[in-house]
Design a protein around this nucleic acid. Sequence first.
RNA 1: GCGCUCGUAGCUCAACGGAUAGAGCAUUUGACUACGGAUCAAAAGGUUGCAGGUUCGAAUCCUGCCGAGCGCACCA
Length: 550
Amino acid sequence: MTPEELSQAVLSAVRASVEAGELAVAVPGQVTVERSKNRDHGDYATNVALQLAKPAGKPPREVAQVIAARLGAVEGVAKVDIAGPGFLNITLDAGSAGELARVIVGAGEVYGRGDALQGLKINLEFVSANPTGPIHIGGVRWAAVGDSLARILKAAGADVSTEYYINDAGVQIDKFGSSLRAAANGQPVPEDGYVGEYINDIARDIVAQVPGVLDKSEAEQKQVFTETGLRLMVAEIQRSMEEFGAHFDVWFSEKSLHDSGAVEKAIERLRAQGHVYDEGGAIWLRTTDFGDDKDRVLIKGDGETTYFASDAAYYLEKRDRGNEVCVYMLGADHHGYVGRLKAIVACAGDDPQHNIEVLIGQFVKMLRGGEEVRMSKRAGNIITIDDVVEWIGVDAARYSLARSSTDSTITLDIDVLTSATNENPVYYVQYAHTRMCGVKRKAAELGIVRGEFKPELLSTEWESNLLSMLGEFPRIVAKAAELREPHHVARYLEELAGVYHRFYDNCRIMPMGDDPATDLTYARMWLAEAAQIVVANGLNLLGVSAPERM
RNA sequence: GCGCUCGUAGCUCAACGGAUAGAGCAUUUGACUACGGAUCAAAAGGUUGCAGGUUCGAAUCCUGCCGAGCGCACCA
């Protein structure tokens, strides 16, 4: 019996109690059934009685008794206990619990997918770092979290498109171009320009790719260095992201919004909605109508459009492509944008509670020699995505960045990263997977083929623990998707790996010596394979490999 | 000054408003002539920043205070 089926059974028990007049309460839409943390509390627990106590006007334990009486009679349920303030602790009979292994093996890589977000078209924009330099450690966090989130949302049934917004318009691009030109000509870096080894590298590449560029006029040089530099830098970022396993369906150019006239069109649309006005020679959007601190300028007094105008046009463009929900993943230094972004949505006549979601993530702090490293391009101590991958590899990097909530700043110790220790919990999870594969290898070596499955043989505490843990997976995926929090999947995998390691230690799977394979051998092979499927599916959601050997 | 986010074991981090606040690392002590010991078992480690409030129940929600990070442009 899966937790989903059990949940339905509990719901039926509630409904039956209501219909029998034992409970005067509205039947809830659904009830949560969770795996018990403590083995003394059975396989699964539900707090439904606690939640129904108040509307029913009865003490929680009395409500629990009514439900328990009916639930105990359900096929597959061995025992129902009432505990504490009114929890229902449910123990399944071994056969019923063990059936889950068959379900999982049958489902294979589909196990864990659901329909919680079925039919929802979501656009997920993340990283979107300026193409004036390599992706640094902060951007890497969004690459790991964003790409994992995309995978999780898809697993929950959503129609997801991922997107990287290239800020290829504006003064920072001009500075980038002139910095490249200066480097190529051996001139000092211009005011507020970009420095670093990568600037010299790109400048050299441009000189090599465009023969005679240094003989051209200053204006022509600026154009060549800006355009070619931008192209090379974007290509570099794309390569880094590709190697990191972060996939973007769309690489969207800010400049294209201006070239296509989308910005002007957007302003007209907002004007038609009645939120645009002229003042002091500039054109404004009245974002204060929708909770923003102050109104925002769309077109400056000098006729130039603002970055904010691009944002508005970009949002409308995304919506025109049929995206129902536009998710933005921004760094903590951009949290001031949330208000104005939501105001854009409201000004456009959309619902800021639904059509846009802004996820704010905190910074990554780096430690070296026990002291915080303040990254500065000028000091040349930027830590890039390529550095991190070189030190610890894609798997460990993605995992360590995706296993924490983005609400909290995380601190990475460079000394630990570069020493390549086994401190990263990803190895704990991956090792569990290799052990599962090891069992298969051993079985092949002994010529054992998995025979008929007798689920009732999986009766020890380690086996039932593993089964109930495996049953949680679909619920975890749905939760991670709904909360937009990939770290729940990672935490689940760590717990699952622990449960598996303990099962492995206490429950010998393969026969010893020359002993023949028994029904118990087969049953445990089914269970081990089910566990392997879940770990592999979970790691895949995080973009981390599930190795057969380490 | 105003606003957003955060404050949990020595360190890095978990915990749909649920039961005795959990893992890993570090520390101490045990376990292989057996499927890979990158493992397992055990010990120790906490007034969840402080003070109130809400309720069957608060690390979680509300208020105030303390502390940290970040943001408050006709910049991008």
